[in-house]
Design a protein around this nucleic acid. Structure first.
Lengths: 340, 340
DNA sequence: TTCTGGCACTCGTTCGGCTGGAGTGCCAAC
DNA sequence: GTTGGCACTCCAGCCGAACGAGTGCCAGAA
């Protein structure tokens, strides 16, 4: 049976272990936290907690270390998010408000998050797939060479070059531009790509070929999900604080190189819930020693991407969760403003 | 006096030490390389090399380790670049040819370079300051809201939003677009920013205010050297191979977070020469244990940026130099093609 | 029933001393 | 100038003892 005091003991063990990185014993525990009972009592509680699988003893005469299951209970029942200090809130606001474009928002966020948590931070670039087309611009660099510029509702801009077989005059270009925007502006990109397909049939035959070329490239750019896989990473130097190089740091460093892996780690976090994945709960056995604290961002009904921090299971969960949530909220707000 | 055989001995020491990470003794040396002399002779040579400061003995009864000065001599006199294998050349070509835009070129390059050298690779994004304006596009999102799109010769695209106090009609917009392009197309961005300043005086008074707003933002975007400081980094996981965490890995990880530091490390490498900076030769005392192999890229007369690898002084210089040079050449060629 | 103090026990860590071996410097001989 | 021999140095690794933090259990108190 796990009563309130045992939970207190678990909380104390987690907090101490996170702070010191050393197994914590009964005596040190009652000294550092005012538990109001004797070490012997705590020992009894510890024996029960160990039996239940929440803590673990590296060897017979050592203190206790939380297990993944112990961290899980800690996070679910015990962790009250540390509120951000006023100074931290101000720092977040001023830093992110200074961003000039989308890339800048992402880069500032990831940096900020790693500094706040002193962990490795990851921010996924806003996904294209749920955004709508704001505008398509066609620029004639030469009569047979067009630059296509695709502006999306998230603020992302994609550009592509198209070579035409037949030169295109200004009037034709204006007509094509109007037609393309007519078909796609305000539409989600997947639908827009489809809608564009019908265009070449509606224009004069002599321009059909050029239109087809333009439409093909545009549709390609719209269904190009490369940027869905883009992530920004910051704070790798924070890994240096952790001992245990081979089991904890090296696999994580390797994972950080693989953006696909990172995206899977971030997972499909709900927009308003901070999810915590502890050690073996994650999809990669090599990362059994690392935890992920993540959440989605974007307007409530429209999940644009995820952000979070990764670190050893032995991490400051309340602090990380609070920081992740705070940054996600600010990012959502800023993206929403830029989009109104 | 340092004769040919002593240079051979130095070369052998460097090669063995790089391969094994352990001080190398006289006996192992003659066995592994066919030096054709006895260990005693090698010992005599080593004594001289040590006196001259090219190698160093960690303690009395240990083998020898090259000093920074030793590596320097090795690089200057002894290192013949390892030619890239045909397979490697092909890999470079196919990988980089598949890039769809500028960001993609940079990201593929940095990844490639880190894989080729198994080191940490750094690629600076092409600097804006030497590029010219290819085209400026103005898009009316609403009558009082313009999106400015600045297309540069390197393929970089910058976008900015401008709010107008007075609505602008299509005709006025076309006129402004023409005027802006007239003033800036083909001109280096610094000069273009200056040229734009005179524009508001030349338009009808009722549009002067809007023109001023547009011009201000454009000039700002042109003189915004943020992207000059952007770098891509890849291969940090390769650091895991090195022991010596505190002296070598940690400071480097920290430096990798600071892009300004990285740029200083890459330095102003000439476009056609691979420069090598060994240990203490660099500007940062904390990075005394790391070396940098870098070069510039871009068309011959026009240095666009630098790329290179960083790693411990104990690195494979010939291999790294060859890879850096090869990648820089391919990148230059690709940027040149996209620009013709 | 629950908590507490006491006590014997376990076991990892630390430290000193020892040894083996790799490597050196020097010297005499070739 | 090169070589083989030899005495010397000193690090790395191993072993055993002492140490101490921490435990489990038990009998007695609340």
């Amino acid at each position: 049976m796990v009563d309130d005091r045992k939970l207190d003991v678990l909380r104390a063990i987690v907090e101490d272990y996170v702070a010191t990185e050393e197994p914590v014993g009964s005596k040190a525990l009652v000294e550092r936290h005012g538990l109001g009972v004797s070490p012997a009592t705590v020992r009894n509680d510890m024996a029960v907690l160990e039996e239940e699988g929440y803590i673990h003893q590296p060897h017979t005469s050592a203190g206790r270390v939380p297990t993944d299951k112990g961290y899980r209970l800690f996070v679910d029942k015990l962790a009250t998010l540390k509120p951000m200090s006023a100074a931290e809130r101000r720092a977040i606001a001023t830093l992110l408000d200074g961003a000039v474009d989308l890339d800048d928002v992402v880069q500032r966020s990831v940096r900020l998050l790693s500094q706040l948590t002193r962990q490795v931070a990851i921010v996924q670039y806003p996904t294209l797939s749920r955004s709508t087309v704001r505008h398509v611009e066609l620029v004639a660099l030469t009569p047979t060479r067009l630059m296509l510029i695709l502006i999306l509702s998230t603020g992302r801009v994609e550009q592509r070059l198209v070579e035409l077989d037949v030169p295109m005059g200004d009037a034709d270009l204006a007509e094509l531009r109007a037609a393309v925007n007519q078909a796609s502006a305000g539409v989600q990109i997947a639908a827009a790509a489809a809608a564009l397909g019908a265009l070449p049939d509606d224009v004069r035959p002599e321009q059909a070929e050029s239109t087809r070329a333009v439409v093909t490239v545009l549709a390609d750019a719209m269904s190009d999900h490369r940027s869905d896989e883009r992530v920004a990473v910051s704070g790798t130097a924070n890994l240096a604080r952790y001992g245990d190089f081979d089991t904890a740091v090296r696999p994580l460093l390797e994972a950080l190189e693989e953006h696909v892996v990172l995206l899977k780690l971030l997972g499909e976090s709900g927009a308003d819930a901070v999810t915590v994945r502890i050690g073996h709960e994650g999809p990669y056995t090599e990362l059994a020693a690392t935890s992920v604290v993540a959440t989605g961002y974007g307007p409530l009904e429209n999940h644009l991407g995820s952000l979070g921090v990764v670190g050893p299971t032995r991490m400051d969960y309340p602090g990380s969760m609070a920081a992740v949530r705070a940054v996600a909220r600010y990012v959502s707000r800023i993206l929403d403003e830029g989009n109104q």
